[in-house]
């Protein structure tokens, strides 16, 4: 059963992944090429998924959108992971007062609803690709910081750490050689689970007009554009929405399987 879920997640993920990779060197049409005579063309031989209100090819736009979704998701969560893990390590290993200040700050960030925090960052940094990326990365920092903090606290009194300390190893070395290998699997699991939610936040921001801006393509942006015409052309909201669901579903399932694997590994170690 588990094996099939994993295979399914790989198959689902391959769809946006291959579309995104191919989009780097080939799209059926340039994504901004307008063909007003052929707007809302529907599914046809010339346009496999039809065209939008400007006669732009939907398949080409979807390919670029998957590229942006996956790239934005991965890069922002990676940034969040690195910064968050760093802050988590510092707050776990420094003295009581510094650690308390860091923790309060992390808790404060975690109290914000995701979109609210992202919206505030957009107000500060302006909209567009890079500020969306930074906004999502900052949103991820407290999540990873909290996780790293609790993982390190869990291990702090383990024998191998006490032994390493008594050998007089420096703290950075202990973190790098002893803590990191142990906590890394858990961070990776959280990483894969977070990419899905990062993509969902990106799409919601772009949908609200605060994320990726035209003429770029993104799932959320395409749905926003489709909204004005959806009552006459309901089909327009389907392709981008379905591809978005496939992407996030693939990532979530992958995260779940990784998590199960890890739990099993943990059991055999004990």
């Amino acid at each position: 059963m588990r094996k099939y879920v994993f295979i399914l997640s790989v198959i689902l993920l391959l769809i946006p992944l291959s579309l995104g990779i191919v989009s780097f060197f080939y799209t059926p049409y340039p994504i901004t090429e307008m063909d007003i005579d052929n707007r809302f063309s529907g599914i046809s031989k010339a346009h496999l998924l039809g065209t939008d209100q400007f006669g732009r090819d939907l398949l080409s736009r979807l390919m670029v959108a998957s590229r942006y979704a996956l790239l934005l998701g991965t890069v922002s969560v990676t940034l969040g992971l690195c910064a968050g893990a760093f802050i988590g390590v510092i707050s776990a290993l420094s003295n009581k007062w510094i650690s308390m200040i860091f923790l309060r700050f992390i808790d404060g960030m975690l109290a914000f609803p995701g979109i609210v925090l992202a919206m505030m960052f957009v107000v500060v940094f302006g909209d567009g690709l890079y500020s969306t990326l930074i906004a999502i990365a900052i949103f991820m920092i407290p999540i990873f910081a909290r996780l790293t903090y609790s993982l390190i606290k869990e291990q702090q009194h383990a024998l191998y750490i006490v032994a390493a300390k008594s050998m007089g190893l420096s703290t950075p070395r202990i973190v790098w050689r002893h803590y990191l290998p142990v906590i890394l699997p858990r961070l990776v699991t959280q990483f894969s689970a977070s990419i899905g939610s990062a993509i969902l936040i990106e799409s919601a921001l772009s949908y609200l007009g605060l994320g990726v801006v035209p003429p770029n393509a993104s799932f959320g942006l395409m749905l926003k554009e489709a909204q004005s015409f959806m009552l006459s052309y309901p089909y327009l909201i389907l392709p981008s929405g379905i591809l978005l669901v496939i992407t996030v579903l693939g990532l979530n399932l992958m995260g779940d399987t990784l998590n199960d694997r890890l739990m099993k590994l943990g059991d055999t170690h004990d």
Binding site: G196, L200, S203, A204, Y207, G220, L223, A226, Q227, M230, L231, P234, I237, G241, L244, V245, I246, V248, L249, N252, L253
Partner: peptide
């Protein structure tokens, strides 16, 4: 539930609007 988890709320809302409200 897995599929529901992966669906963005604004998309569900759009589908409701098109296929139910309208």
């Amino acid at each position: 539930m897995q599929i529901g988890d992966a669906m963005p709320q604004f998309w569900i809302a759009l589908i409701f609007l098109v296929y139910i409200s309208a």
